[in-house]
């Protein structure tokens, strides 16, 4: 099957039911010191993951991507919002429902060096994952599963890797072991937080291709967190763009990257290196600094950096507007009564 599918029905909308669904995810971290100040790390984020589909979450450093992943993995408690797995709400951090959730939703971290304990062999790491998630499994079944897991992540023959320590493996191999460990739980959802950014450039694509194969074969739902929007285009069906803790745009990856609607997404795309734009780049586009999350800007959080900011951007946070088939942007320029401003900002065609 070709995996470079054009944006189809599923990436355009939500024709298949969501496995994992988050509504109004909000996380405030308390700040030490006087006053009841908080870091508004994530604010009102909606997200849906579907079986056999990849959603990319992109945005600048500090925009709240990892916090979203940690909320979804139940590693942090929600300040507000609701997470459902197959329509079932999970709100306690204990009990059978919670355990089922943890088995089904597995996380892969950025740093393959830190995420594997250096004193444990690959065999131990994987056996532990299998035992936790398949209590009472027979020994021979377990051995067979070990081999299958390593084969699935292309570490073959498995015997060559089972007795190795993490330091005896390359970065790419370590990340494959971390993926195998996650698969040991037989999950339906993988939360991959920058799974390749610590790897050498020549092996990143290999790991992404592996994740894509696994997704197709095991019908996994994947959340792919990255700050590399070109890799989101390559790997993800849908892309969600975050800015300062909020979703500013979402839609089919191809539409979001080729026809970005939100001024922040446009800035992000214009800033990415692109050899084909050699010499054609308009200079001086990239301006401004990320905002404070302790006292975030009023109205639209992007307004201090936005070249098109209007009066209401300063006073009122924009709702999310439909801008294309399955593509949405939280920007006042797309309000019905902003035709003039929109034309002034993007030219007649937009």
């Amino acid at each position: 099957m070709s995996t470079l599918h054009e944006a189809d029905d599923v990436s355009r909308g939500t024709t298949s039911p969501a496995v994992l669904k988050a509504v109004g995810l909000t996380k405030h971290f308390p700040v030490r010191g006087p006053g009841n100040r908080v870091v508004h790390a994530v604010e009102g984020v909606d997200l849906e993951l579907q079986q056999g589909r990849v959603v990319a979450l992109v945005g600048e450093s500090g925009s709240g991507k990892s916090t979203v992943a940690r909320l979804l993995a139940q590693l942090l408690t929600l300040t507000k919002g609701e997470i459902t797995l197959d329509g079932t709400r999970v709100d306690a951090h204990f009990g059978r429902k919670f355990r089922r959730y943890c088995r089904n939703v597995q996380m892969i971290l950025q740093d393959p060096f830190a995420s594997l304990n250096p004193i444990h062999r690959v065999r131990y790491v994987l056996t532990r994952s299998i035992k936790i998630h398949h209590p009472g499994i027979r020994r021979d079944e377990r051995e067979q599963l070990l081999g299958e897991l390593l084969t699935r992540v292309d570490l073959t023959p498995p015997e060559r890797y089972l007795e190795k320590f993490p330091h005896e493996l390359s970065g790419g191999q370590r990340q494959r072991v971390a993926i195998a460990r996650a698969l040991g739980a037989n999950p339906r959802v993988l939360l991959a937080d920058e799974p390749v950014s610590m790897l050498d450039v020549s092996i990143r694509i290999g790991v992404l291709n592996l994740l894509r194969d696994l997704k197709d074969r095991l019908n996994l739902a994947i959340l792919y967190i990255t700050h590399d929007i070109a890799s989101a285009r390559y790997f993800a069906d849908r892309t969600v763009v975050m800015y300062a803790g909020q979703v500013v745009e979402r839609g089919p990856s191809e539409d979001v990257t080729q026809r970005p609607a939100h001024p922040y997404t446009q800035l992000l795309i214009a800033s990415a290196p692109d050899a084909d734009l050699l010499g054609e780049r308009a200079e001086g586009e990239a301006r401004g600094e990320p905002p404070s999350l302790i006292s975030p800007p009023s109205g639209c959080r992007f307004h201090p950096r936005c070249p098109f900011a209007m009066e209401r951007c300063v006073t009122t946070a924009p709702p999310i507007f439909q801008v294309g088939e399955g593509q949405e942007a939280a920007c006042w320029l797309y309000a019905e009564d902003a035709t003039e401003e929109r034309r002034a900002a993007f030219g007649v065609s937009a």
Binding site: S170, Q173, S202, I203, I205, D274, D276
Partner: peptide
């Protein structure tokens, strides 16, 4: 040539990439 095939393009046609087999 392998390195150039390790970076997905942001514009232009989408194409399947292979990276470079093995590790550094």
């Amino acid at each position: 040539a392998g390195l150039l095939h390790s970076f997905p393009p942001l514009h232009g046609p989408r194409r399947e990439l292979g990276g470079i087999p093995g590790s550094p």
